[in-house]
């Protein structure tokens, strides 16, 4: 099969992905104060990207041919898409939701950084244990569970940093530490995968060439299983980390943009100073 044919044919509109997407959109529309604006566009593009990740040829590649394609999918589902979803929720909705009894408790739970961090980083580590990964590749329902788990744990992971309600967010410095340590966690895994010998994930060593593109991958693109594994590990490591880094830049930017608490409460003690500065200010 030629590559173009593959790109055209390898779409699999699996019902569960569409149902999951529809469920997300429906619950978004049900948020109090829902309106069509930039934020809802962001949210729906997040959902769209998720659907694409799950049904496009990328999914086919990731499940049958390339560990690196799986990893790109993984980064999208765990880091990028949940971030788009969470940023799509309007602050007013969160405020209103906080007044509902149950939602308030849920949000307080989500806002707790320790479980959120463990879930975010843990879901990378656990799902990449070679034995588990092998099982997942062969078991359809586990695979579905894995994908949904990625999105949900990603959502919970980002919550303490980007929660719609300001009150639920960590302070910027704490958020930076939160993100940097998560980056460390994912780097180490990326490192281990990159520098471990080839063949960590045997499923990709000799794929069944269902779509007939194996020789293109191996011979034209020169992606041997070893190279494939390295690309995968490095994708988790470098671009993965850059996302955390960009996020911590975003928290700092948000911090600097917010107004400084007023000078009230500062004791007006005068120091022993000479008024010497004779230059004008530009």
């Amino acid at each position: 099969m030629s590559v173009l044919n593959f790109l055209g044919a390898a779409w699999s509109f699996e019902p569960w992905a569409l149902i999951f997407a529809a469920a997300l959109l429906a619950s978004y529309a049900a948020l109090p104060g829902f309106r069509l604006n930039g934020r809802s566009l962001l949210f729906s593009s997040g959902v769209l990207l998720m659907v694409l990740t799950l049904v496009s040829p990328l999914d086919h590649l990731g499940r049958n041919y390339l560990f690196s394609a799986h990893m790109i999918q993984h980064i999208l589902l765990l880091l990028v898409i949940p971030l788009m979803l969470i940023s799509g929720i309007p602050e007013s909705a969160a405020d209103k939701a906080l007044r509902l009894p149950l939602a308030g408790a849920v949000m307080r739970f989500l806002g707790n950084p320790v479980p959120a961090w463990l879930l975010g980083v843990g879901s990378m580590w656990v799902w990449h244990m070679p034995s588990l990964h092998d099982i997942v590749m062969k078991n359809e329902s586990l695979y579905i569970a894995q994908q949904i788990c990625f999105v949900l744990s990603g959502f919970i992971f980002w919550w303490p940093v980007f929660a719609p309600a300001r009150r639920a967010r960590l302070s910027p410095l704490a958020a930076t530490l939160y993100l940097a340590s998560a980056c460390l966690g994912c780097s180490i895994l990326g490192m281990l995968i990159t520098f471990a010998g080839a063949g960590l994930y045997p499923a990709y060593a000799n794929p069944t060439d269902s779509a007939g593109i194996l020789s293109y991958i191996r011979n034209d693109l020169c992606i041997t299983p070893g190279v494939d594994q390295q690309i995968g590990g490095l994708t988790m490591w470098v671009p993965g980390c850059l996302i955390y880094l960009a996020a911590s830049m975003a928290t700092l930017a948000r911090w600097y943009a917010s107004p400084e608490p007023g000078p009230a409460g500062i004791p007006a003690v005068e120091g022993p100073l000479a008024k010497a500065d004779s230059y004008a200010r530009d």
Partner: peptide, 21 residues
């Protein structure tokens, strides 16, 4: 310090010398 000057900005000694700007 005997007395720490008040800090109301990034350049406390400027603020002290030029209270009106």
């Amino acid at each position: 310090f005997e007395l720490v000057p008040p800090v109301r900005g990034r350049r406390p000694l400027w603020d002290l010398a030029y209270p009106d700007m």
